[in-house]
Write a protein that binds this DNA or RNA. Structure first.
Lengths: 205, 205
DNA sequence: GGATTCCGATACGGTTCCGTTCCGTATCGG
DNA sequence: CCGATACGGAACGGAACCGTATCGGAATCC
């Protein structure tokens, strides 16, 4: 049987003897999970058989690496979302527009995967915690920092509620890009600018 | 076997002979579906066996009424969301606050069910259409009407973009009440007022 | 070259759910 | 009272999936 040439094995593996694990198979498995989620399969309905088939891999190859679906999913999601976009340090307005513009643009796939994660997140406190810590909170913090800068320069009101403002900025974009909550917004091509302008006018000192 | 007393059969049933269908069983089935969805079972993972067991009903009783899971779900969701809350016709500000305040309050159960519907909605164009027509669009229209009144009275800018404004008002509430996107907002007790005030200041004439 | 480990593939017994088909009983119209 | 239909419950054959085991071959270390 013709075996694919192997990449130089996963880093950090403390293995000493025998054939090293194929990093090619490793990647194929993670990719298969994302593929399936992207197609609309929920976490709950995601089957190990389907993952193995999609990855072109034996089930044993999956179970050799992860104890079960949960651990596999955790690693997959961490891979999915890299570090958040950083502001450029221009004006508050330009930075906010920049941060909003990348929502669902930089991560086409992540946007399609997210709705499939929602049931899990709203049911399991553990899933909720991971989702908060790894995905949403770091992105909110970046935006908070921009707003704090605006408060420090006097551009924004000193008594600004950071949490409310951050939520007001991101929520419309998230809801539109993730679930297309209001399809009429498809025709609005400068949504980030419009949102930032309304909010900034509302919270300017 | 002690049979429960029957309510006077579902209306519109053109049946003439034999024992009429139990409207009690009918209701129990719909209720069971909502119960299960509320507990975090996704549409995909919702099983007819579980529904029948929860409703205290034979599976045949379900299949006698609906051809499959899809048709049963459709009827369930239509039952779930009644007509949207109506504005009182006070000030624009008071009406908007009122509309935002009921998000996820009037319909405790609907809020918990919604996340479980998201995967289905984002995967199936048909589900998306039904969701838009039956749930989100009627509620947006109520809010648009309030905004149009504000424009007519000169309270709001004449060139106001209704879609963007509606989305800016509702999205933060939806995201918070449905998936608790930002847990720090739990401590904010006047979120609707704050949002309305910022947006109104941003779009005042 | 020999030991060891991983590879993809296949098969296993066990579980859950499907949609249907029977029961024996209950409840209606005529 | 009788015929017709619905009821809850149980069982069916078939399908999908679980996690494990086993296979012959392939890759790497000692």
């Amino acid at each position: 049987m013709t075996e694919l040439a192997e990449l130089p094995a996963a880093p950090g593996a403390a293995r000493t003897q025998g054939r090293p694990r194929s990093s090619r198979a490793h990647e194929a498995i993670l990719e298969a999970v994302l593929d399936l989620l992207e197609e609309g399969v929920t976490v709950e309905a995601l089957s190990m058989e389907a993952i193995a088939a999609r990855a072109g891999v034996g089930k044993a190859t999956i179970y050799r690496r992860w104890a079960g679906k949960d651990e596999l999913l955790l690693e997959t999601l961490i891979k999915l979302k890299g570090p958040p976009t950083q502001p450029l340090g221009d004006s508050v307005r330009a930075d906010l527009i920049r941060l909003l513009s990348v929502v669902g643009q930089k991560d086409e796939r992540a946007v399609r995967v997210m709705p499939c994660l929602m049931p899990e997140v709203s049911r399991s406190p553990e899933a909720y915690r991971i989702w908060q810590e790894a995905i949403t909170e770091p992105r909110r913090e970046v935006m908070r920092e921009v707003l704090r800068r605006g408060v420090a320069t006097g551009e924004l009101r000193a008594d600004l509620d950071l949490e409310v403002t951050v939520t007001m900025l991101i929520s419309p974009l998230l809801l539109h890009r993730m679930v297309r909550w209001n399809p009429r917004l498809d025709e609005v091509d400068d949504l980030p600018e419009q949102i930032v302008d309304v909010v900034l006018r509302g919270v300017t000192a």
